[in-house]
């Protein structure tokens, strides 16, 4: 049971949250300009990081806000949480 700090609500139990997978996947501005391979990369392909991984989480049972988490997939340590559009303190987004 992780302890996840919602950027608004503070530290809460993992059971209040849902994970939405890799963060910073940006919807292409002009999908038609993309090749099939590029579009497939956006739709289907995700990194499978061993180590620090940027993820989107939503505070499902709390404030229902989406936010970003840098979580180490080996140690489960949460290195940073930050709101959409922000960059993590001292880290790369």
């Amino acid at each position: 049971m992780l302890l996840i700090t919602c950027p608004w609500c503070g530290p809460r139990a993992e059971s209040e949250f849902s994970c939405g997978g890799e963060a910073h996947i940006v919807r292409p501005k002009d999908p038609d300009a993309l090749s099939d391979a590029e579009w497939a990369d956006y739709v289907f392909y995700r990194t499978n990081t061993k180590g620090d991984h940027a993820e989107q989480w939503v505070h499902t049972y709390g404030c229902r806000r989406w936010f970003n988490v840098i979580r180490n997939t080996v140690t489960y340590e949460i290195k940073a949480v930050y709101k959409p559009g922000e960059t993590p303190a001292g880290g790369e987004a």
């Binding site: 939405g20 989107q56 989406w66 559009g85």
Partner: peptide
């Protein structure tokens, strides 16, 4: 509901 909020909050704020 979660899907709609996600688009609004993260992609189309």
């Amino acid at each position: 509901m979660t899907w709609l909020e996600r688009w609004l909050q993260t992609e189309w704020p």
